[in-house]
Amino acid sequence: MRKIVASMLMALDGVVENPEWTVQFRREDSQKYKSDELFASDALLLGRRTYQEFAAGWPSMQGTGKYGERMNSLPKFVVSTTLSEMEWNASLLTGNLAEEVSRIKQQPGQDVLIFGSGELVHSLMSLDLIDEYRLMVFPVVVGGGKRLFREGSEKKVLKLIETRTFSSGVIVLTYRPDRP
């Protein structure tokens, strides 16, 4: 069974929105981690906003090498109630979210990776469909913006399965839901 993996860029204060604050922390070791993560997946699951931003940039981005080739070639599953046409190797998920994602998980293959897509991650968290959280925590306090774990979120017990520290001070905390 495939895993649904939420890979989130997060500030110390929990903000996951508009991560332009990550640029100053990019180093070779963290870039390799993100590349390895992408190559360990064979599909992306994206919310509408992230899909539109990525689809507008990635296909014509120059100098991205094998990472860009992989990003552009992977199938994308997009969750949206407003889009009707897809491009960039994408399929629109239009049915019941829990059923659609469960169906994708049952297909053979590697992990299905969620980049960003905060609203989608919240919906999937409430349905207990995320199998792994990879929180790339940056040593910066943004001060405001959407957070991954928002006020009023349902209590979730997570089990730490891995930590990794990069030369920039960025830490990846990998958790799985502590399911019975």
Score class of each variant (00 low, 15 high):
V16A: 12
A55F: 06
R134Q: 02
F25P: 02
L44R: 00
D29H: 12
M136H: 10
D13W: 03
N89G: 01
P177Y: 01
V140F: 06
S153L: 03
Y51N: 03
K155D: 10
P75K: 04
R150A: 14
A6G: 00
F54Q: 08
L45I: 01
W88P: 02
R2C: 11
R134T: 01
S73E: 02
S153T: 09
R176Q: 15
E132N: 08
R179L: 07
V15R: 05
N96T: 01
E119R: 13
G116V: 09
R103N: 15
K146R: 15
G109W: 08
E53W: 11
S168N: 08
I114K: 07
V142T: 13
E20Y: 14
V112F: 05
E20F: 15
E17Y: 09
T94A: 15
M10G: 02
N72L: 02
V142Q: 14
A90E: 04
Q107L: 15
A6W: 03
Y67V: 13
V5T: 07
M136G: 07
D111E: 05
L45M: 07
M136K: 04
A6L: 05
L9H: 14
F54R: 05
K105Q: 14
G47N: 07
R176K: 15
D36E: 06
G68S: 04
V15K: 05
L158E: 11
Q24F: 05
E100N: 11
D13I: 03
S35T: 15
R103F: 12
F77E: 12
F166D: 05
K105A: 10
V172Y: 02
Y133Q: 00
L173D: 10
N89V: 07
I104V: 07
N18E: 15
L160G: 03
L127T: 05
P59N: 01
P59L: 00
V78I: 01
K32V: 08
I130E: 08
V157W: 08
Q106G: 14
Q24T: 14
G169V: 10
G95E: 08
G14M: 10
S35A: 13
V137R: 02
V170I: 08
L97N: 13
L120A: 02
L92Q: 10
K105V: 10
D29V: 09
L148P: 08
D29K: 14
A56W: 06
T50I: 12
A6M: 02
E154A: 09
M1W: 03
T50F: 06
A11I: 08
R2N: 12
H122P: 09
T174S: 08
E37K: 14
S126G: 09
Q24L: 10
V78E: 05
L160D: 09
E69Y: 06
V157R: 13
G95A: 10
Q107N: 14
I4L: 06
I171A: 06
E17Q: 14
Y133P: 01
V101E: 01
N89F: 00
S84D: 15
V142I: 15
S126M: 11
I161Y: 10
S73K: 00
S80Q: 03
V137N: 01
S35Y: 07
G47P: 03
D13Q: 04
T22D: 09
V137F: 02
L135A: 04
V101Y: 06
L135S: 00
P177M: 01
E69P: 02
G57Y: 15
I4Y: 00
S123D: 07
L44C: 03
E85F: 05
E151D: 14
G47T: 03
A55H: 06
P139E: 04
V78M: 03
Y133H: 07
